Simulated scan of single mutants.
Amino acid sequence: MTADYYAPHGGHPGQNQLLTDRAVFTEAYAVIPKGTMRDIVTSFLPFWEGTRLWVLSRPLSGFAETFSQYIMEVAPGGGSDRPETDPDAEAVLFVVEGTARLSVDGAEHDMTPGGYAYLPPQAKWTLFNRGTEPLRFHWIRKAYEAVEGLDAPDVLVLNENDIAPTPMPGTDGKWATTRFVDPADLRHDMHVTVVTFEPGAVIPFLETHVMEHGLYVLEGKAVYRLNTDWVEVEAGDYMWLRAFCPQACYAGGPGRFRYLLYKDVNRHMALRPPSRGAR
């Protein structure tokens, strides 16, 4: 089945539209609906030309603290030859519209919708839109947690459409995860996957775990349980969960419900705050 990815295009609602929407920010989770991603809330970055972005999440003390997530919008001819200013940052890119020309350590790749790239810290990379239509992609950033005796992960440039999803046991494939990284590869301290539910499929228990989450709905709709609340979400919405926030869902149909999922993995829990001046 051909994948379908929702991406925001900005603009503003008319003056005659009601203000009511589904945006909510609580101590345990946030829901940022697609209707909030308007021109007025875009941001810009140093050394990026012809580019604006929506910031979906950023580290906040007492909330989700490990990552940031952007939706980047790059006009034809735009891009950057100095995209990342933090040498300790690792990144995942996921293309939802258009074509990206990614150069990493001298190797060039054309990334189309469904394209995934993992970029380790210190990677030398550039990205440009060489096409005639806007490019839109997710950029997830994390400060890499190095471990003595483990090398940094390798660069990966893949496409979701070339990877067979892994079904969850006992679900007859109705709940499946597309994994870009081997879960047993402990060099990685974050995973970004695509989770797919067929119509009517469920997460059948309240997941409660240490991993923080960013969930961007790529396709379809569902009712999601977040902490003590049931919320409706659809393609283009974003959910941001702090550690241990209970979560479950019902996929509403009529089509598939799919989301891009971030989580932090494979590291000891820090037992003391970072030293003053540390990144």
Rank of each mutant, 00 (worst) to 15 (best):
G131M: 10
V155G: 06
T177I: 15
E108G: 01
S103R: 15
Y118P: 01
V157W: 08
I163D: 01
D151Q: 08
G131Y: 10
Y144P: 03
T177W: 02
P113C: 02
R141V: 08
W139E: 09
D162V: 02
R130H: 15
R179M: 15
V192G: 00
I163K: 04
K174S: 12
P113G: 04
A176K: 15
N129F: 11
A123H: 05
E133F: 03
T132L: 13
V194C: 09
A117R: 04
R179T: 06
A164S: 10
H188K: 07
P121V: 08
D189Y: 05
A123F: 04
D154A: 15
V157N: 07
W139T: 02
P113V: 03
Y118D: 02
G149R: 15
P120K: 01
K142D: 05
G173Q: 04
D151W: 00
R130G: 10
K124E: 13
V155K: 06
M190S: 09
T178C: 06
H188Q: 08
W139M: 13
K124Y: 07
L102K: 10
T112M: 04
F128S: 12
G115L: 09
N161F: 00
D162E: 15
V104R: 08
D185V: 12
A176G: 06
Q122E: 13
T178P: 01
R130M: 12
R187V: 09
G170T: 07
W125K: 07
K142V: 10
T178D: 01
N159S: 13
L127T: 09
T178N: 03
G149P: 14
G114F: 04
V104K: 07
L135M: 04
E133L: 09
A107I: 08
L156Y: 05
G115H: 10
A146M: 09
T193M: 07
R130D: 15
T132S: 14
R136S: 02
A146P: 05
Y118Q: 02
G114A: 06
W175T: 01
H109V: 00
L150N: 06
